[in-house]
Simulated assay, not measured.
Amino acid sequence: MSSKILVAGDVHLGAENANAEAFGGFLDSVSQNCTGIEQFVLLGDVWDLVRRDPFGCAWETSETVTRLKRLAEEIPVSFVYGNHDTYLRNLDDALYGVEFRDQHALESGGQRVQFRHGQSFDRLQSDVVSTYLSGAGDRGDIDPTNGRKDPIVASGRRLVQRSKRGLKLAASSLLGADAGFDGTPTYPRRERRAHSHVEEIAADKLVYGHTHVPYVHPDNTVANPGSWKSTAPVHNTFLVVEDGDIELYQYDDADAAESPEGDSTGSLDALGTPISGVSF
């Protein structure tokens, strides 16, 4: 049986519309069906720490911490820091059995795959701003913002993103197509920066998060597992890397509920269904 690498990220626990229940069920399914899984990689932003009390957020989502620790006893779990993870850098990974990293690389089917969060491809992203916004809230309470982002920052990002979408629609209308001459989709700039990054690193493939857009590039060299926020058009998604091939899956908690508990068959059917991702 060939080994598999599971990849998920951008759950944003503690934020509005984060599907904590589905992600918890997914972790349970991985624990119950971990045969043949070489490693589980989390691409950061599992918790949403913008203007939140980090202790309060961890307290509210303690079941997820317990699940991750239990899973780490079964298979290696690596956590790649995201832009929301400023305070996680102070944790002792030995206490959780999870390895915290800035980036990660693994071999699969003779291919070297690099894993990173992907905020470096986002020019609207600033580590200085993230550090300022992450962590304790205005009043020092447990979650004084009730999971909401800083309103000024959130409004500014929405305005910029809305403007970019408008420009893209206008350009598509003028050009009369949403795809390149070879029929492949025309990707936004963050994705294009990620694609070109493969040429700069000692790896054959790149798996990154941050943008919440689940897809696998047509040439199978770059992929994004998407997010677990119900605000995303396609969510509750993850990637499977097997023999160097990357495939996108969507978790279905209804199917998982029908799977016999403790059935460690290693079957991906118990974890999700292959999907094609989203259109750009």
Rank of each mutant, 00 (worst) to 15 (best):
S62Q: 14
R192N: 01
K69A: 08
D53N: 15
G36R: 09
L175G: 04
S155T: 11
F181G: 10
N33S: 14
D178E: 13
P144N: 00
K149C: 09
T221C: 09
K229Q: 13
T231Q: 12
Q161E: 12
D204G: 11
T86I: 12
T86L: 11
A105K: 13
T221I: 09
R165E: 12
F26K: 07
R157C: 04
D150G: 02
D141V: 09
G180C: 03
P225L: 08
G166K: 14
D219E: 13
W47Q: 04
A8I: 01
K164I: 08
S108N: 05
P218T: 06
I246L: 02
A171G: 08
V222R: 03
A171M: 12
E74R: 15
G209D: 00
E261K: 14
S155L: 11
D28W: 07
V278K: 08
G135W: 05
A270Y: 12
V216S: 04
D143C: 11
L167R: 15
F26N: 05
S31H: 03
E261P: 03
D253Y: 09
W228M: 06
I75Q: 08
G183W: 03
E107V: 03
G176K: 11
S173I: 11
Q103T: 09
G137R: 03
A154N: 14
P225E: 07
I275P: 01
H197Y: 09
P260G: 08
E247R: 15
L71W: 03
E200K: 15
G36S: 07
D219Q: 10
T145R: 15
E242D: 09
H212E: 05
P225A: 06
L106D: 07
P76R: 09
L159W: 06
N146D: 12
S196I: 04
T184N: 14
F100Q: 07
P188M: 05
R189W: 08
G82Q: 07
G56Q: 08
H210N: 09
S134R: 08
S3F: 05
T237I: 03
V240A: 10
G137M: 04
K164Y: 04
S155W: 07
D53S: 13
R148N: 11
E191Q: 14
S172P: 00
F181D: 14
L206E: 01
N17P: 00
D122I: 01
L13D: 02
D182A: 05
R189C: 05
L88I: 06
T231F: 05
N90I: 11
G9L: 02
L13A: 10
L95H: 10
F280G: 08
N90E: 09
S227C: 14
G140K: 10
G156V: 02
S108C: 02
G118T: 00
Q161G: 07
S267P: 01
S264E: 12
I75V: 12
S279A: 12
S130A: 15
S78D: 07
L88E: 10
E38A: 15
E73Q: 15
F40P: 02
F181M: 13
Y251S: 13
G140L: 08
R189I: 09
V241K: 05
V50I: 13
Q250K: 15
T66K: 15
F280M: 05
G244L: 04
I275Y: 04
A171H: 11
D269M: 10
M1P: 05
V98S: 01
G110Q: 06
P214E: 03
R148S: 10
T131C: 10
H210A: 02
